[in-house]
Amino acid sequence: MTLVSVRDLTIAFGGALALRALSFDLRRGELLGVVGESGSGKTLAALSLMGMAPEAARVSGAISFDGERVDTLPETGWQSLQGRRIAMIFQEPMSALNPLQRIGTQITEAMIWHEGISRAEADARALALLGEVGMPEPQARLRMYPHQLSGGQRQRALIAMALACNPDLVLADEPTTALDATRTAQALDLLRGLARARGMALILISHDLAAIERVAERMLVLYGGDLMEEGPVAEILSRPAHPYTAGLIRARPRPRPPGVPRRPLPTIPGSVPGLADLPRGCRFHGRCPKGRPVCAEGRPPLVDIAPGRRAACLFPEPV
């Protein structure tokens, strides 16, 4: 059953298209990864799903949530979805938490706001939530301020905050950038486990293919505001269709088996184009090893290349 349906979502700043006609669907309880470098439009897309696109942005296209058009909602209409049915986990747990409020107050705020429950009931739920996200000594943590928690604990508090009203969809925007490798893995497993246990859909936004691989079933690859490739994570990672995806996968750091000589990590030549100088045609053609003059002529259409897989490339790899 479709929970979210995005059609031709386009976001422009002045004349520059930061996101170009993005379309995708998300099923209830599905775990979707969105991968892309900074400037790919992945965060903008997530903010639009929250009704929180920047004021300067011109947004067009259609977004449906649970069968209803939401992109046309007024601010107050969005407010009844935000935090209640759609929640977001932000990047930096330290700056995303209000430094002056206790953790408990911040977790219960959305419950009391949306559901009008009593403080005692909200406190009990917050305590249970903190237990669920694996916070040590949850009772004491409820009374603490963000600066008294460790980075990993703050991230767990943010996750508990997002789950406060048992949403249908959680958007996690680079939720682990502030964490070390061990805590990253723990936080990702926690997110996946919580989403599975609650039947909650999750969109994990990351530049890190390992994070996507650990959490998501299906993934979108964004580059320069365009959807380059879409499909099941395992298939894309083993047989990428788009040269950009292939480049990303080659550029992943991997453990070196013993005896194998050290060699430089492959990179994608060039750099991500800025909003002001997005190339015509395929946005990747200038950096693409398979780029030809025809790639600059028009945007390659997103075509089905295998069951459940789509790619926007004139010369896709065989899959």
Partner: peptide, 9 residues
């Protein structure tokens, strides 16, 4: 922004 994402007015 977090507060806005909670749906507060």
């Amino acid at each position: 922004r977090t507060a806005r994402a909670k749906g507060l007015s």
